[in-house]
Design a protein around this nucleic acid. Structure first.
Length: 614
DNA sequence: AAAAAAC
């Protein structure tokens, strides 16, 4: 730890390794502050970098410090490191926020990829050579390590032999070469467990129930075979593919659907596939049947699909591949009626169905098996268990008011951004994000389904670009979202089920990387502590003995797992309308509406004076 | 229990 390698790229901060980022407690402190006591060498460098344009650096406040260090300095040989990367592009090595695209801007109705399109990766490759690093081993963490071999169990009739390399797919199933090259071009060289088993099964037109831990590449294990078996794009003149969409992928949140869509585009590069991310806008353009019939794949949330079905603007009679991502979520009580309507509309006799999830509780599995025809069940690792690569811990915080101080203490120590924090409700997410901002935590962000679509998309793309260091969120983010850089997850509010816990902490430790998960628990969470503790134990994280000795929660208590009433505001002591700090730092998307309210209140105070309360 | 999924 003798030197800190810090990158300032596009006005944002990166460090080469996860272990030590710029300690957050440096930020917001003057250089004379005791926090910065000691050797100023590397800190000075960091400070200079900060003063050159750190995202939230308050130059006014630190005017003197800036002067102190701002003697004009010749570009160092390493200067190239932070000199003008392409707008919006990260050098390949730093692109651990892989899907930089996020949900930005307007898109064409169809993001059709022509063979002439330039691969997105190209620009980045050019940058690659410009990057020099003091200690190359620092990057070790960022390279996707090989995924540890995990036990795979299969159940079903005539299970196809698994593959060991993607290339085998070409010999065995004659899948199009461009799919294989797209895979390798995007860095997918070796199939993961679920991919090596799942892809052959789907390519042999079998139904599949796939259970594989978070971050092990489930998305590709259905996108590859679906694209491969669609064969010819529907727009092609010689297609004999019937009319209407032929493959559907359903996911529980818009963010996840969007992410799947991005993956699909990567894989589809070079062919004229019509992949549609279903939304209000795309749905209306599909009202035209001639347009609709040229669509190959639709990726959607369930309600969106049902709405279009009911208004007669969509038929699913030609669907030959139906994929449920996060299947247990899709089949639970809230989504089930919608899903049943979708199943009923998929009338093609040769439809192939597949369900994917990291967790599949008995009830959901039973429903799934009822839908699938002669299914093969593949389980990678242990069902309902997080990856052993995630080091998990439980932190006692007594009661709800104690959580905020505990979190602030935690964030005052060096941590590994970005950190993902889960709360139990939307207001609590907004409120917590505000508290963190007001307490000087840098680059706080917030995301929940109460925000506008645009706000949600912006928050996701900030996260993808690495601009968010601390993301406060609700269950929306719990499933499927793949932010490669997330190294720490904090369960600020106790998860409401084992599945929720497994998925939440599965936002870290993806693609074979290490991760850390901290779960706060209060006295009220006590009855449910043991079941989570068992999850920790099963995946190899230590658990204090006293927790294991807790009695099993009674049936009644278990039924009400997570039914803990929590106040909406994280810090009730703080008055609403105080948020000058927030007005200045318009960084929390979710605070917008609140802010407006606060402003009306303040301006209303005038009339209060004159009217002194009628 | 809350969140999520349209319009």
């Amino acid at each position: 730890m003798s030197a800190y390698v810090i990158f300032l790229l596009n006005k944002h901060w990166y460090t080469a390794r996860g272990k030590l980022s710029l300690p957050p407690n440096w930020i917001g402190h003057s250089l004379n502050s005791p926090v910065l006591n000691g050797n100023l060498g590397p800190k000075m460098e960091a400070f200079q970098l900060l003063s050159r344009g750190g995202a939230n650096f308050d130059k006014n406040r630190f005017k003197n410090d800036v002067k102190l260090f701002s003697k004009p300095k010749a570009m160092t040989p390493k200067g190239k490191l932070w000199s003008q990367p392409l707008e919006g592009e990260l050098p390949l090595e730093l692109d651990f926020f892989k899907y930089a695209q996020g949900g930005s801007g307007k898109r064409k109705t169809f993001d059709t990829l022509e063979s002439g399109d330039e691969p997105k990766g190209k620009k980045r490759k050019m940058e690659e050579e410009d990057v020099r690093v003091d200690d190359e081993s620092d990057f070790g963490l960022e390279e996707a390590p090989a995924i540890a071999k995990q036990r795979v169990t299969t159940r079903g009739t005539n299970v196809p032999v698994h593959i060991n390399t993607f290339l085998e797919l070409k010999d065995r199933y004659q899948i199009p070469t461009h799919i294989i090259s797209n895979l390798s071009q995007h860095g997918y060289t070796q199939p993961t467990g679920i991919q090596s088993y799942g892809i052959p099964i789907l390519l042999e037109s079998r139904d599949l129930a796939a259970i594989s831990p978070t971050g092990t590449g489930k998305t590709l294990s259905y996108l590859v075979p679906v694209l491969a078996s669609l064969g010819t794009p529907a727009s092609s003149a010689k297609s004999d593919t019937g009319s209407g969409v032929r493959a559907i992928v359903i996911a529980p949140t818009r963010e996840l659907a969007h992410q799947i869509y991005n993956e699909c585009l990567k894989l589809a590069q070079g062919r004229k596939w019509r992949v549609v991310l279903f939304s209000k806008a795309t749905a209306s353009t599909l009202a035209d049947k001639s347009v609709r019939d040229k669509v190959d794949i639709i990726i959607s949330t369930p309600l969106r699909l049902v709405t279009s079905l009911q208004s007669g603007k969509l038929e699913l009679g030609n669907v030959r591949h139906l994929i449920l991502d996060e299947a247990d979520r899709m089949l639970d009580v809230e989504f089930l009626p919608q899903m049943e309507e979708i199943f009923a509309s998929c009338t093609h006799p040769q439809i192939q169905k597949a369900v994917f999830s990291a967790t599949l509780p008995a009830g959901a599995e039973k429903i799934a098996m009822g839908i699938l025809h002669d299914p093969i069940r593949v389980v990678v690792g242990l069902k309902d268990t997080p990856l052993p690569l995630i080091s998990q811990s439980l932190t006692y915080v007594a009661d709800d008011p104690s959580k905020l101080p505990s979190l602030l203490t935690y964030l005052a120590q060096p941590y590994n951004p970005p950190v993902l924090i889960f709360t139990s409700s939307q207001p609590r997410a907004t409120s917590l994000a505000e508290e963190l901002v007001l307490n000087g935590i840098p680059n706080v962000d917030c995301l929940h389904a109460g925000l506008s679509q645009k706000e949600r998309e912006d928050a996701v793309s900030r996260m993808r670009r690495g601009e968010s260091w601390v993301m406060v969120s609700t269950e929306v983010m719990a499933r499927g979202m793949d932010f490669k850089g997330v190294r720490e997850v904090i369960n600020y509010d106790f998860p409401t089920s084992i599945q929720s816990y497994v998925h939440r902490i599965g936002r870290t430790g993806r693609a074979g990387r290490e991760g850390k998960a901290v779960t706060f628990f209060t006295d009220e969470d006590g009855p449910f502590l043991k079941s989570i503790a068992n999850v920790l134990l099963q995946s190899g994280s230590p658990v204090p003995e006293w927790i294991l000795k807790l009695p099993k929660p009674s049936k009644m208590k278990r039924k009400t797992m997570g039914k803990v009433k929590r106040p909406e505001s994280i810090n009730p002591a703080r008055r609403v309308g105080r948020s000058d700090a927030i007005k200045k730092r318009d960084m929390i998307a979710g605070s917008k509406r609140r802010k407006d309210k606060a402003e009306t209140k303040t301006s209303g105070s005038k009339s209060q004076v004159s009217g002194v309360d009628a």
